[in-house]
């Protein structure tokens, strides 16, 4: 129990480092997906991660909450080691502190929107059902789904499902939100609703890491843009620099391909 409370109680001030990744590596057999990633995430920072497919960006994101176990390197959260190079430590706490939203939504199809948002609050956070449901309705309201709380996922559009998924992660009061290409599976007209929710979240001071192909969103919302290729961070910096005046050839090539169509 004592170990459990350390992470939760620790307060990190805005602008201070909340998560550190050093020499993170991930390979599947001989295939090296992440070669050597160093990353320092500050509280309240919004980071957008761009890169061609296969560059390792989603894998990196999934290594941060240890859905994928890295093959090397360390991850620390609020100064506590959560991955020591071999195995996870404080895994439950890490997962509680990080919310994740997936490309394919992954809502629980056997539960209503409200139940989707409540279940982990009840089972993981230990909230009473009434309290959790109240919070769920409030959170669903914030993502514009007041009228859909009792609908099941198969009755919701992709954009609505994705907003439920965001509400589900937020209801756990995470410190960091990880977004893994959350608009890639959506019809074009539904993308904006999801991006608007993310924009609002960024404005509210949430620490966010977004793997995305939405260059416009990155330019407008990100504090920092990271360009990845071949398992490395090739270039990073403020969006004006990385997107407006990229220094690396690979970044220029990628942006040329993405923007010229």
């Amino acid at each position: 129990m004592s170990e459990e409370s350390t992470l939760l109680e620790k307060e990190v001030a805005r602008g201070e480092t909340i998560m550190t990744v050093s020499s993170l590596k991930k390979s599947y057999g001989k295939l090296e997906v992440l070669r050597d990633i160093d990353l320092d995430i500050k509280k309240g920072e919004v980071i957008c991660i761009l890169g061609p497919s296969g560059s390792g960006k989603s894998t990196m994101l999934r290594c941060l909450n240890l859905l994928e176990l890295p093959t090397g390197g360390t991850v620390t959260l609020k100064g506590e080691t959560v991955f020591d190079g071999e195995k996870p430590k404080n895994l439950d706490e890490l997962r509680r502190e990080t919310g994740m939203v997936f490309q394919s939504f992954n809502l629980f199809p056997n539960m209503s929107a409200k139940q989707n948002v409540s279940i982990a609050q009840i089972r993981v956070r230990g909230r009473k059902k009434d309290e959790a449901d109240k919070r769920s309705i409030e959170q669903l309201g914030k993502v514009g789904l007041d009228e859909k709380v009792d609908e099941y996922p198969d009755r919701l559009s992709g954009g609505q499902q994705q907003r439920v998924a965001i509400a589900r992660a937020l209801a756990m009061d995470p410190e960091i939100m990880l977004f893994d290409e959350v608009t890639s599976a959506l019809d074009p007209e539904l993308v904006k609703g999801v991006l608007d929710v993310m924009r609002e979240l960024a404005d509210s001071g949430m620490t966010m890491l977004c793997v995305t192909h939405e260059i416009g969103f990155a330019r407008e919302v990100a504090d920092r843009v990271i360009f990845m290729d071949g398992g490395y961070i090739v270039e990073q910096g403020p969006p004006d620099n990385v997107l407006g005046n990229p220094q690396e050839e690979r970044t220029q090539q990628f942006l040329g391909l993405v923007l010229d169509h």
Binding site: N65, L67, D92, G99, N106, F108, I119, R123, V124
Partner: peptide
């Protein structure tokens, strides 16, 4: 789908909780 387990685990559920509340109910159906 694997994504169901991942979603449950990313919310902090243990393997047992993910099985009990998310996977088994869907699997049995």
């Amino acid at each position: 789908p694997q994504g169901q387990t991942e979603a449950a685990r990313s919310l902090g559920m243990s393997h047992g909780q993910a099985m009990r509340f998310v996977i088994i109910p869907q699997a049995v159906r």
